[in-house]
Write a protein that binds this DNA or RNA. Structure first.
Lengths: 222, 222
DNA sequence: ATCCAGCCGTCATGAAGTCGTCATGTCGGA
DNA sequence: TCCGACATGACGACTTCATGACGGCTGGAT
């Protein structure tokens, strides 16, 4: 996956972050001082740096500046126990991509980590909702909001509707749907697609999906 | 879902931000001048303001000061094309909760938007209470205050509910909960999560937590 | 030390939801 | 009219979740 460098002089924080990052599938490098961090960056390819501000010898802000001069400039997320606004501004000004105060919630830090790693597994947050006219699909929660009300959808139904809505106006061929929604590269010889769409139509009154005989289906929203 | 007011005199920036925010499920109001923004704030309920600094007529800093005098004081995130440190410090000193330089990464701005709409980590880390609708969780004393009364919760129950409430609106995956609430990086092969949630549901009538089959749970309070 | 109450993980079992398949009905086009 | 494609309703295997019960454990009170 990706390589993350954790720079913190506290042993426990190091271990804590390492565990969390490893469990997310990342390779984790550690450094206990700014200088050590720069050494690592000089030799290892790093995709993201988590950098504590308060450290002995060379503090995080100095280290951040040094990283900006170095051979590679991975994104840096600053960690800090102080909620000092000035430090935060300085850090962001000097090129840190994000700033997280300690104590932090692990999930939040992990979310930010994912966000700043190129093509992270959770870029999907941007298309959580798909809208068209009066219909809004919440892909995460699998709910369709219509003018009538809110309807819960099954996973497969959500995937199918999301696909059709993302390609609104285009005709989605049957084999395309089988490939993208069902992950099948062949025709199962049954009418799965029709049945799934039928269930959608049953749940959502006036679903703007029309049948293109012999080809597939087309979402015709706004 | 929240209401966000975007104040920027540039048409393109407005549209750009509007699209991004709508896709996150927010209601978006627009204003092209500071005065217009104040008018909106006088009549509409707004949860967050994105405010450009450089504007004709009344600039962002003046507008910020005026907002602080107004009927409601929603959090304000300042946007600015200038990288002037002084402007940033001034803005933050005058009560802006965050400062983002243009050009900005959309994902970063959205992250900060979400953060400040969710109640902000500045308070969150120290916040003893987590509230949502008629439900209030006292994290320290492990008590849930509802419209019915006060209920004592166990430690694990409190941690789970706190996590779900902090991420209200988001679907919390099972493995995420195991990681953040139980500290497990692997699946114990049992139904701990379900059982713990069951105990919460047993103690708190009408707990607004819905299950997303095959994924996890989602707190759906206002 | 002993007992008791609450916490919390595990398990067995039942209920509910998911989803592919099939049989049959219906419709459109040549 | 006939054929093929789609619509529809039902069924059942399967997965996942909800639920109640059990027991080890711990900390406080007796």
């Amino acid at each position: 996956m990706s390589t993350v460098l954790v720079v913190d002089d506290e042993e426990r924080v190091q271990a804590f972050l390492r565990r969390a990052l490893v469990s997310q599938g990342h390779v984790v490098l550690g450094a206990e001082t700014g200088r050590e961090a720069l050494d690592v960056l000089a030799t290892e390819s790093v995709d993201l740096v988590l950098l504590d501000i308060v450290m002995p010898e060379m503090n995080g802000l100095q280290c951040l500046a040094a990283i900006a001069e170095g051979p590679q400039q991975p994104p840096v997320i600053m960690l800090s126990g102080v909620s000092d606004v000035a430090a935060r501004v300085t850090a962001l000004d000097r090129g840190a991509v994000d700033f997280v105060g300690k104590p932090f919630h692990l999930s939040e830090l992990m979310a930010r980590t994912r966000r700043h790693l190129a093509g992270g597994p959770r870029q999907r947050t941007t298309d959580r909702y798909i809208e068209s006219g009066s219909l809004r699909l919440d892909v995460d929660r699998r709910r369709a909001h219509t003018s009538v009300g809110v309807t819960a959808l099954a996973e497969r139904e959500t995937a199918l509707l999301a696909h059709l809505m993302r390609r609104r106006g285009d005709v989605c061929r049957r084999d395309e749907l089988l490939h993208d929604v069902w992950g099948l590269d062949f025709d199962p010889g049954s009418n799965v697609v029709e049945v799934c769409l039928r269930r959608l139509r049953g749940k959502l009154e006036d679903l703007p999906v029309e049948t293109v005989r012999g080809v597939g289906y087309c979402f015709v929203g706004d």
